[in-house]
């Protein structure tokens, strides 16, 4: 099978859904996952209903992926949750939940994906961070901490996986109109946009463009990098 095999977490809605449709349109075989079922139907799309931080669920997903496709070219580690709250008012359960999805989920999927990719000595892993990390955004301490950890993970795994021909990079979008920011007050978003060099919301196409770049075969010499949108 010549078509690339691409796994996208958090593919039911938002950026993940857009990327699933984007890569299906380019002829990829796409496997998506999310905690809830999807309405995306396509001959080359498979969906798994799992929590990205659930090891047993992830193992079963990778086992079926290996069986059906025998390889994996790309992992887009998009699944993420946010929590808008002052640190002094944030319940510990929220911190754990944010860390579980954003950090543990990213780690688990990168670990299992790399095991499949190393056989072919080729792979591309793209993680998701946020401009809220370099902006040290107040009111999102747990979310920002989880994404800072994802950036560190990206840089270390890039070194550990380089000999296997696998690159690991991260994209840091500015706010894009999705459910993730629906609950964020309008003035908060405006304040964040004002700190960007290019003062507008991000679009799905802006994010897809960076992911496209990281996935390209020609990008094999680009690893351990974090690319922020909007000139942050």
């Amino acid at each position: 099978m010549a078509e690339p095999v691409t796994l996208i977490t958090g593919a039911r809605k938002g950026i993940g859904r857009h990327l699933a449709e984007h890569y299906l349109a380019q002829g990829h075989r796409v496997i998506g996952c999310s905690r809830e079922a999807t309405d995306l139907a396509h001959a080359h799309y498979r969906h798994a209903t799992i929590d990205v931080a659930d090891e047993a669920g992830a193992m079963a997903l990778f086992a079926s992926l290996r069986k059906e496709y025998g390889r994996l070219d790309h992992l887009i580690n998009n699944a993420g949750i946010a929590s808008m709250n002052h640190s002094l008012l944030t319940p510990i359960d929220t911190v754990r939940r944010v860390m579980e999805t954003n950090l543990t989920g990213t780690f688990l999927f990168a670990r299992e994906a790399a095991k499949v990719m190393q056989r072919a000595k080729f792979g591309r892993i793209v993680n998701f961070t946020t401009v809220a990390v370099p902006l040290r955004l107040e009111g999102e301490a747990a979310y920002v901490a989880s994404k800072a950890a994802v950036e560190a993970l990206t840089r270390v795994m890039a070194r550990e996986l380089a000999d296997f021909g696998i690159t690991v990079n991260a994209v840091g979008p500015v706010p894009v109109q999705t459910d993730l920011i629906r609950a964020v007050p309008q003035e908060k978003i405006a304040g964040l946009v004002a700190r960007q060099a290019i003062k507008r919301l991000g679009t799905f196409a802006d994010v897809a463009n960076v992911v496209d770049f990281f996935l390209r075969r020609e990008s094999g010499f680009v690893t351990g990098q974090v690319l922020y949108l909007g000139g942050v």
């Binding site: 090891e55 086992a63 290996r66 095991k115």
Partner: peptide
């Protein structure tokens, strides 16, 4: 590095033979 590759190969062999994912 070779040890990492061996452990992964054993995980995959276990999965093929016993149809259960083991990390």
């Amino acid at each position: 590095m070779a040890l990492v590759s061996l452990v992964i190969a054993v995980e995959q062999a276990l999965e093929e033979k016993y149809e259960v994912g083991v990390a």
